[in-house]
Amino acid sequence: MTSLELTLFFLLAAVLGVVIFRSFKLPPMLGYLAVGAVIGPHMLGMVQRSERIQHLAEFGVVFLMFVIGLEFSLPKLRTMKRHVFGLGLLQVLATMLLSTLIILGIRWIMPELWRLSWQGAVALSGVLAMSSTAIVVKLMAERLELDTEYGKRVMGVLLFQDLAVVPLLVLIPALAANDDDLGMELLFALLKAVALITLLLTGGQHVMKPWLFTVARRKSSELFMLNILLITL
């Protein structure tokens, strides 16, 4: 298939999947997941793994996270700081600690079957501590639960998880370093994580707002759309 044919095929499959699942009053997200599993390489094999598929999937994730990000702002984050930095921090740390202990316990009980190092256990526990913001937010929005008290708590946890992804992505490669260099690698990873989060939370606001206002003053919807696509990608 050409890139255009591949994109049209995916869109058609997604539309049909959502129509079928909505007819049974099921969330559209389940339709997307089911269709992807059916047409993927492990079932019907209508779509095989390739570099084009990988790039298309990355674009999809970028645009999906951008749309979710439009719902939040720094002022909203500050009003939810008790949920975000309290409940969210507790959930991530508790899940990572408990998962690491369980994984290391399995390795101690069955060393011949489970040989994951402590670095691998920490990396795997970081994965287990994360949830899918895209899926959960979409489901809660459809049920009009985002503004409820428990909805705010769930959103607080999800927001902290999204913030925690940045240091985790920096930390995991550092864990692969040699034992002699591990301390310096972890320190360097921590500094990079702090710099990235600072850039996202402060620098982005100060740079993006004036630029977007400048583009908006040109009163061109095409220019504004092109600018949004450029910033997002």
Rank of each mutant, 00 (worst) to 15 (best):
T95C: 08
I103A: 09
L6K: 03
E58Q: 15
L6Y: 12
L190W: 08
G204I: 01
I106Q: 05
P27A: 08
G69E: 04
V165F: 08
Q48A: 13
I172H: 06
I39T: 04
L12Y: 07
G60F: 08
A129F: 11
V61Y: 06
A164E: 05
L200I: 14
Y32R: 01
P75K: 05
I228H: 07
V15W: 02
L146E: 09
S3W: 10
L101K: 11
P210M: 06
T100P: 00
L97W: 12
M155K: 00
T198I: 13
A177E: 09
A164F: 07
A176W: 04
L116W: 04
V61G: 09
E51I: 02
D147Y: 09
E58A: 14
L26G: 11
L212T: 11
A134M: 08
A57Q: 11
L186D: 05
W108I: 03
L144T: 12
S3V: 15
L70T: 13
A189H: 02
E149V: 15
L98K: 04
L64Q: 02
T214P: 02
K138N: 11
G88N: 01
A195N: 07
V15N: 00
F213M: 12
D147P: 03
A34M: 11
F59A: 15
A164V: 03
G183H: 11
L8R: 04
Q161E: 11
E145I: 07
M184D: 12
